[in-house]
């Protein structure tokens, strides 16, 4: 299995040049009044759906830059985020 990712410095490269850094999970929640359950969910809980998700990647075999990109785990293609359907 292989696919390509687009490094903001080097351009499109084989995924084997990169190290996965996990899903982007937003800013760290305020520590004050943070319950242990909320803390656990922010630090540990991940959900992968078959739709584009924002992820961190590190170009370990190239320029050494951390960056985020949107990748669809169902297709392993970089895709922009789906527009939220409005009812």
């Amino acid at each position: 299995m292989t696919f390509r990712l687009t490094c903001p410095v080097c351009g499109a490269r084989d995924v084997y040049e990169f190290r996965y850094g996990g899903q982007e999970r937003g800013p760290r929640p305020e520590q004050a009044q943070l319950s242990s359950d909320e803390h656990f969910r922010w630090t540990q809980f991940r959900m992968t759906r078959p739709e584009p998700q924002e992820e961190w990647w590190y170009h370990t075999g190239g320029c050494g830059v951390w960056f985020t990109t949107w990748r669809n785990p169902a297709t392993n293609r970089e895709e922009p985020p789906h527009e939220v359907e409005r009812g």
């Binding site: 080097c10 040049e17 170009h59 190239g62 320029c63």
Partner: peptide
């Protein structure tokens, strides 16, 4: 300049 692996070495 190209930054990348040659013989798997960055």
């Amino acid at each position: 300049l190209t930054q990348g692996p040659v013989l798997h070495v960055p």
